[in-house]
């Protein structure tokens, strides 16, 4: 029973990490109309950043902060230099551009760091277990990750639902022409969304680094699952991405725990069912 509880919490926490990644992905699709296959690589970069900084004896919270700041800056540069010019290009061009970025990011990682597996230690302050109910104890660091993800999700929803820029982003996701007609600065919104998406993906990578090992191509699995989340949640919908990410996180984690050989297939099978039932996503407004 306690094992099952732990797996449930693991699933929720995994789902929340997935949400950090896929919320950026879905907004970038929705607002800019750009498919970014390199989004998983940004997650990988965040994890390696955490590894490098903690190996240099910096605390993990500093690495988390650095991943957000570096991510925002990196995302803004990528958007201005490359993605801006690919908004109106064909899907084939976007797929290949972002595939090239994956290859180049992996090469840069190999050249700057190495091709080895690394582990990032859990901060000493959080390296204990908390008794949750009865004699069921759960890692304190995992609980903190849970809380941080929930906090970020809440902030994001508040920002998107309650602020002026947020409503401009929602308008842009629904109808890009509308933003131009209303006289809002679409170019600035695109940079903002891409920078935020990159920062979120890199933050997720840095948060996940102490939970799993840091290794080449670690973003690939997250990329596929994020795509499933976006499909199930509905393109451009942050709320949809939240519930879909929890669903996918739970199914993937429970699947890996109890039916290890079928986990990868179970998630995609669920996506197939959603596509049959509601091709534009489970949570899309119809």
């Amino acid at each position: 029973m306690t094992g099952f509880l732990a797996q449930m919490l693991n699933g929720i926490q995994y789902g929340l990490l997935l949400f950090l990644i896929s919320s950026g992905l879905t907004l970038i699709f929705g607002v800019m109309g750009v498919i970014n296959l390199a989004h998983g690589s940004l997650f990988m970069i965040g994890a390696y950043l955490a590894y490098v900084l903690t190996a240099a004896a910096l605390p993990l919270w500093a690495a988390l902060l650095a991943s957000v700041l570096a991510g925002a800056l990196f995302g803004a540069v990528l958007e201005r230099l490359l993605f801006r010019h690919f908004r109106k290009r064909e899907h084939l061009d976007q797929v290949l551009l972002t595939f090239a970025l994956i290859l180049l990011f992996e090469e840069a990682r190999a050249a700057l760091i190495d091709n080895q597996f690394h582990s990032v230690p859990v901060p000493a302050l959080l390296d204990f277990s908390v008794r949750v109910v009865g004699d069921f104890a759960y890692s304190a660091y995992r609980l903190v990750v849970l809380a941080v993800c929930l906090l970020v999700a809440a902030l994001m929803v508040l920002f998107i639902e309650r602020t002026k820029i947020g409503s401009a982003i929602r308008a842009a996701a629904e109808s890009p022409e509308m933003v131009d007609l209303l006289g809002l600065n679409a170019a600035w919104i695109h940079t903002l969304v891409f920078a935020a998406g990159t920062a979120l993906a890199m933050l997720a990578g840095a948060l996940a680094a102490p939970l799993q090992s840091v290794y080449p191509g670690m973003g690939d699995g997250f990329l596929i699952l994020s795509f499933v989340v976006v499909v199930i949640g509905g393109l451009g919908s942050v709320g949809g991405a939240f519930w879909a990410a929890l669903l996918v996180g739970l199914i993937d984690t429970l699947g890996k725990a109890y039916l290890p050989q079928l986990a990868g297939i179970a998630v995609c099978g669920m996506m197939a069912l959603v596509l049959l039932w509601r091709p534009s996503g489970l949570f899309a407004r119809t």
């Binding site: 797929v95 795509f227 990868g264």
Partner: peptide
């Protein structure tokens, strides 16, 4: 029949996911 219910970005994403499903079938089992 599943993938072709979608178009554009969705088609890209669903074909990616279905393709990886077959990949995992040979990778994990």
């Amino acid at each position: 029949p599943f993938a072709l219910r979608t178009r554009g970005f969705y088609f890209l994403m669903t074909t990616l996911a279905f393709g990886q499903m077959l990949f995992f079938l040979f990778h994990d089992t």
